[in-house]
Structures are given as C-alpha cells and as structure tokens.
Design a protein around this nucleic acid. Structure first.
Length: 466
RNA sequence: UCCCGUGUAGCUCAGCCGGUAGAGCAGGUGGCUGUUAACCACCGGGUCGGGGGUUCGAGUCCCUCCGCGGGAGCCA
C-alpha cells in the first residue's frame, strides 16, 4: 500500500474506515493496562504526530512493539478510525507495525521525550530536527522562504544570484573571510616581503561576500526590479543572540524609486510573508506561542493589520530626548541609535514596527543618497518590537560626482569601483533597496531567543560543528 | 572583544557555614481493562569541566584555563 504523510492521515475525514500506511519515527510509546500500546509517530509533515494503536495480538507485539523507544523508525499499516480516546480526532488501528531501524542504547539517545534546553539541543544540531520545536522552525523557515520568492515573483521581480566569492572588500560592511588556495606554511612573497596574491587562485586577494547589493544594482539598472536571496558571511567576532558568521540575506533593489517607495516595499514585503506563515503554518505558530514565546502568534496577527509608523531620524531623537528615560548611552543628533533606543521607540513609545528615515550621513554607508540638507542621507531602518532592526535600506546615490565625493570622504579606492560608478555614467536613475537578514526574520516570527536556533547548522565564532 | 553568570547521572536540576553525592525524567525488570510528558514497585547508572592552590579533609573556598549562556559593542 502506498504510504501517506501523517499530515494527510490526520486531515482525512474521507479516509475513515480505510486502510492506510504511515512511516516515520516514534515520539513516545505508552503501554496500556488493557494489553495494548499507543505509539505516536511523527514524519515531520506537520506538528502533530499520529497515534497508532497496537494490540497485543500483533505477532511482534511482545518482542518488538513493546521494546520501541523514542527515535525508532517504523512503518505502520492499519485502518484509520475515529479515536476512542481524547486528545486526537483520528488514529490508526494497526494491522502491522514494522520496525525499520532501532535506537541503539536508548538510555543514551540524546533526544528524549521531555523538555530539552535550547542550549543542549544546539550541541546536537544533527538530531535536533527530530524535536517538535525544530520541526516547527524548519517548516516555518521553509514557508517563509517560499513566500519571499512568491512575493517578488508576483510583483515581477527577477531573482539574481550574486557571487559568493568577491575580490573587492567593497561594501566595507565588516570583516571578511579570506578565500585562498595558497599554502599557509609556504606563502609566496613579493620583492618587498609582503604576500604575493598574484600567485593565489584568483590572482588577487579574494573573500566571501558580505553583501550582494553592489552586484545586484547592476541588474536593477537593467531589469528594474530584482532581488538577491543567498548566503552571506561576516567574520566579525560577534557573540550575540542576533549575529551569525554565515547567514542568508534578502536584498531587493528597485529602479526609478525613492526612499518612500523603498519603505512601502519593505512594509508590503514583511506583511506578505507574515500572512503566508500565519495561514500555512498555523499549527507551528501555535506551538511557538505555547512553547517558545507567548506572543509569537498574537504579535504577527496584530502586525499584518496595522500600518507601520514612519518617523524621521530627527523626530526619533526628539522622542528619545523627551522620553524622560535614563538611557545608558546619551542621545543626541548625529549619534546612531543604540539597542536601548530602538527598543524604546518600537516597544514602548510606538508599540508596533516603526520605520526610521533620513539618518545623519556620517553614520551611514557611502552609497546612500545625500539629501538636500547636505547633512542626512536617504536611509531607513525598520525596527520591530522584540528584535530591533530587522531591515536596513536606502535610496542609492545616483549622481556620479556626489557619489565620487562620498567615496573620497570614506577614503575608498575609486579605481576599484569603476564598474560600480559606470551605473552612474550610463543611464543613471534613482534607485533604492534594502537588506533583510533571513534568520532575524525567523527569530521574529517564532519568538526564538537566539538566532543560532533559526538556522539548521549555525556558524559563529568558535562554532562550526557538523 | 568587554561585562556578568554558569559547568554535578543520558537529560533537567538540588546539594546550607568545607566532613568523599541526591531527586525527577530517560533506561531495565515486574505489575496495572485506551493511554495523552500515563501510573505503582524495584534495579543499574557519577574522575562533581581540566589543571593548580588553601586545608587533617574540597562538589563546596582561592587562582587559572576551557566550554556554554546572557548583556554590550558591531551589524542583517
């Protein structure tokens, strides 16, 4: 008989009375006083396991079924029936339970049917997807990723795969991982004694990308609406709940668009993804609300229906100064917003996502468009309650001479950026975009306390196991 | 990188003012008329993160290293 998913079996009112086959892994086994066993089987297709009722009349009842422990893989065949017990609507009255794989040494099987700490599960990243928590996270992550592609596709965006390896330490967005095939024990040297990178694989220094933005701008200024969605690397020694050394980033870029267009896109984008997760993964969000963070579900529901607040950076400063709050870091025009400031604005003062716009030029990147006041740039951050900055974006400087001045001011080597400046020489247009850390989005949706649980195999300083 | 905390059974933890270790869960055995993190009884299970020091004696106090967590900086 053709096996079906647990999800299909649990959903199938039409299947009652029919023979079904499910295959998966044992979550728990309980033996009843009546001489029968209840086996909860999960196959990852949904949050709930299905209950298989195994009678003692099964030929392998005593020598196999009663020895099943958490983690064993089984195939169960039987009749789908309305459950006689409470707690589930349907269950399978088993004709047979076939053990596919045993758990050796069950006492030491790392995933036990009990509440584990997230810290412990992080140490067994290869087994944690078997828990209901990481099953839920994996399904939510997939749903969010699919929704992101769907949102852009429906709006006519083109997904552009920007390079992982780059030879410009361009973006200046942080420390980069070096990519090299040189023999570290026998480095080639130039006459002056420095390392001779002309002997390296690419003939020059190369690194893992910290952002696809500069590359994707080229495609924006030809295809109008584009985005990246791929892995990104930062070699910073950040030990926080919000940083990874390897993460996935989404960077849309739109032509003929200013900062307001950018902010509108960011808001529509977030709401689309949240709605998709709400409708497609209601079971997992409910689980998140029960077991991870109480407001996981209600927060998303409230968010999709209310407009994001938009305020100017200057206004944000005034709000902070008049808050009456004692901040650890003093607030003044020209300083960047600290975590405590962001949290006050979005959590206390406004109580919902807020888009802060037009930051002082001195604290923002060289490619952001200079405003007419000559002091601020057309940059925006989307701040969300509970996590802080979730999106950072800007209108790009499209005027060649202004951009060159900004680059000189940032002491960048203009020679290395000629290809980037070409966009401003040949048919330049105003354009805008933003960057979103995918794992931060997952953290926000699920209510997770640590970004290392939002990606299957986290990479961070001193952490690259599995 | 800085600050704070933490490391005891397979897992989660308790262990007072220093006197060589306990519980729950998990596992094993037996019992129990459909269970929902089942229940009851019994059993096995520990170089108390590593090293050094103080002391008659260290899981406990001190130093140090390592791991982990939280916060900060930086950012997505």
């Amino acid at each position: 008989m053709k096996p079906m998913s647990v999800k299909a079996a649990l959903a199938g009112h039409d299947l009652v009375g029919q023979k079904v086959t499910v295959q998966g892994w044992v979550r728990t086994r309980r033996d009843s006083k009546a001489g029968l066993s209840f086996i909860h089987i999960s196959d990852g297709s949904c949050q709930d396991p299905i209950q298989v009722v195994a009678q003692s009349s099964l030929s392998n009842y005593a020598n196999e079924v009663q020895k099943l422990t958490t983690g064993c893989s089984v195939i169960a065949e039987g009749t789908l029936v309305a459950s006689q017990g409470k707690g589930q609507s349907f269950e399978i009255q088993a004709d047979s339970v076939t053990v596919v794989g045993w758990v050796e040494d069950p006492e030491h099987y790392p995933v036990q049917p009990k509440a584990h700490t997230m810290e412990y599960l992080r140490e067994i990243a290869h087994l944690r997807p078997r828990t209901n928590t990481f099953g839920a996270i994996a399904r939510i992550r997939n749903t969010a990723a699919q929704a992101i592609h769907r949102f852009f596709h429906e709006q006519g965006f083109v997904w552009v795969n920007t390079p992982i390896i780059t030879t410009s330490d361009a973006e200046g967005a942080g420390q980069m991982f070096r990519v090299s095939t040189l023999d570290l024990n026998n480095l080639p040297r130039t006459d002056k004694g420095s390392i001779d990178f002309s002997k390296d694989f690419f003939g020059k220094e190369s690194f893992l990308t910290v952002s696809g933005q500069l590359n994707v701008e080229a495609y924006c200024l030809a295809l109008s609406k584009v985005y990246t969605f791929g892995p990104t690397f930062r070699a910073e020694n950040s030990n926080t709940t919000r940083h990874l050394a390897e993460f996935w980033m989404i960077e849309p870029e739109i032509a003929f668009a200013n900062l307001a267009d950018d902010a509108n896109l960011a808001e529509a984008f977030l709401k689309y993804v949240f709605r998709a997760v709400l409708s497609e993964r209601a079971d997992d969000l409910k689980f998140c609300a029960e077991r991870i963070e109480k407001t996981a579900l209600s927060r998303l529901e409230a968010l999709v229906d209310q407009p994001f607040e938009r305020i100017d950076y200057g206004e944000a400063i005034r709000l902070l100064q008049s808050s009456g709050k004692q901040f650890e870091y003093p607030i003044a025009w020209g300083s960047d917003l600290q975590t405590e400031h962001e949290r006050y604005l979005t959590e206390e003062k406004i109580g919902r996502p807020v888009i802060v716009m037009n930051y002082p030029a001195d604290i923002k990147a060289f490619y952001m468009r200079m405003n007419d006041d000559g002091k601020t740039v057309a940059a925006m951050d989307v701040l969300a309650p509970g996590i802080g900055e979730i999106i950072g974006g800007s209108q790009r400087e499209e005027r060649l001479s202004v951009l060159e001045d900004r680059m000189r001011h940032h002491k960048l080597d203009l020679g290395a950026y000629q290809w980037y400046l070409d966009f401003r020489r040949y048919g330049t247009v105003p354009h805008s975009g933003f960057g979103l850390g995918f794992e931060r989005l997952i953290v926000y949706i699920t209510g997770l306390g640590n970004i290392r649980d939002a990606i299957p195999y986290p990479r961070a300083p001193h952490l690259a196991s599995f």
